[in-house]
Design a protein around this nucleic acid. Sequence first.
DNA 1: TCATTTAATGAGTAATTGCCCATATTAATA
DNA 2: TATTAATATGGGCAATTACTCATTAAATGA
Lengths: 318, 318
Amino acid sequence: MSSRRDNTTTKLDDAARAGWLYYIAGNTQDEIAAKLGISRQSAQRMVSLAVSEGLVKVRLDHPIANCLELASRLKKQFDLRFAEVVPTDPASSSTTLGVAEVGAEEMARWLKSPEAIIMAIGTGRTLKAAIEQLSPMECPQHKIVSLTGSIAPDGSAAFYNVIFNIADAIKARSFPMPLPVIASSPEERELLHAQTMIRPVLELAAKADVTFLGIGDLGDDAPLYLDGFVSQGELKALQKAGGVGEILGWSFDSEGRMLEGLTNERVASAPIPSGGNSLVIALAKGAKKRPAIAAAVKGHLINGLITDEATAAALLKA
Amino acid sequence: MSSRRDNTTTKLDDAARAGWLYYIAGNTQDEIAAKLGISRQSAQRMVSLAVSEGLVKVRLDHPIANCLELASRLKKQFDLRFAEVVPTDPASSSTTLGVAEVGAEEMARWLKSPEAIIMAIGTGRTLKAAIEQLSPMECPQHKIVSLTGSIAPDGSAAFYNVIFNIADAIKARSFPMPLPVIASSPEERELLHAQTMIRPVLELAAKADVTFLGIGDLGDDAPLYLDGFVSQGELKALQKAGGVGEILGWSFDSEGRMLEGLTNERVASAPIPSGGNSLVIALAKGAKKRPAIAAAVKGHLINGLITDEATAAALLKA
DNA sequence: TCATTTAATGAGTAATTGCCCATATTAATA
DNA sequence: TATTAATATGGGCAATTACTCATTAAATGA
């Protein structure tokens, strides 16, 4: 008892133990209670704690035929180098369910590489959900670079910036970008990018081997607006100019062409990587994002996509 | 659906889908049944098929998980009735850290039993460290019996004899063994064992419900030698005869076979309990003790083990 | 075609689990 | 030290899941 660090640690240890006995060893909660000398209710609490703390990871090792089919058609039709489709749960309103898990797996696959890679990371709710699924690992050989600013309009750390969450789970060198997402003027953007702290990050970003990012819609409740990065007026202007989506703050029209002027001339994020071998994977699903995703794949802003069955089917039909 | 090859494939696909909806999306089987248009029972069958076909993989992201895994493999491979593995702290040089705490917990678990039990106790540094972790408790119903002498070669109370330390913490009837660990001759051993004070202790020891003991190595700095129970010459002889470890002073070779003659014909300790239901748990870890532990489990000198991750992994590899 | 075997289905039921609530225990604070 | 707040515990019950069994549908082969 003396060597234990603190209460939380002990509790998580016990939870892990209970979770192991339940999920791996196949004990019932009654059996666990007996083995651990606690009541059944406590055993139940521990198991559920292990789940809610994310200690328990469930994976399904089966290429569900329809998903596979859709993925391969997506790859072909939109000239993608990577596509993954997860089943749609019609009843769930989650905008990340499934996509986040698969995204995390794909990230982990890259991070497991013994060779040093540069992984670039965007931002957004979906990506954040994916990061939460990442299992801790040590990979000091890799560099993880943020493509977009970590500063919210009010000066605080942006909630949906994920580079710091990654750094918690993955022991790799990480490069955040201490910038706002959108500067107040083109001049300020240039000034910010000229900073000695920023330039190496931008250079690193341009050389990324693989990039994971989210896609935002430009509807009336666009994340860019909800999070306060653009004003309502600016959003209206983007919509009027034909904008249907944004990546890293860069807005584009339904053909995937970047909009000229407007907020785009003040976006402080790095450009979307597009070098020859660089893999740019977007994580996105949902009816609301469909036009944005369609535009992004049409305009080859991305060359990889993780989405769900319904979205994939809709993309193929359009 | 067009690409499905045959019935089995389809079934597995559906099972995978059901498994996904259940484990990843968190649906109940009723919901799955509704969504897939099948009965609840069929949904249940599909989910369980997904599990039995190994489509569902559960992983536990916690250091404890590996320990539990190792423990269950130890139990299986060495036919142990009890095995507990604690995480290895690579930074610590302690030979008892973790093992002592868990040993104490296990002792406490037994002592909490309302039914009267006989607990036998060996000796050694690890065991002493374990006893120090014991919380005081009242259990007059139990008997605690020492398996080995409490007299150092110089006639003083042996430092690493732990029965008296137990008696401090635990209010139970305790039975020390006022003997040397190794007598000066086989004859003296017989004489000592014939004493009216000793015989009941030996009889009690033979009936122990559970035994906790340490394992000593027979390297050049064997505890048996350091504590002055055997001379350097005797130690060399033991090594030459193939001795790799000792329990209670009884030396054995790498297969866990007791050595013939030498100091073994003068050991005054009780024999290692081995009755049908008796649980004999050793507390030991560390590279130095590895051959001794391996021999003890191979030769079934013990049927319970508390050790650490590194030692457990090495034992399994050997 | 018909008998026979085999697999699939759903009803019923026992076992297991999730959760709420009252109580006890522990920790924090005055 | 006494009081209060926070937390943990176990009883009880409803929801969920696992399993058995009888029945039905499909497949097989003469």
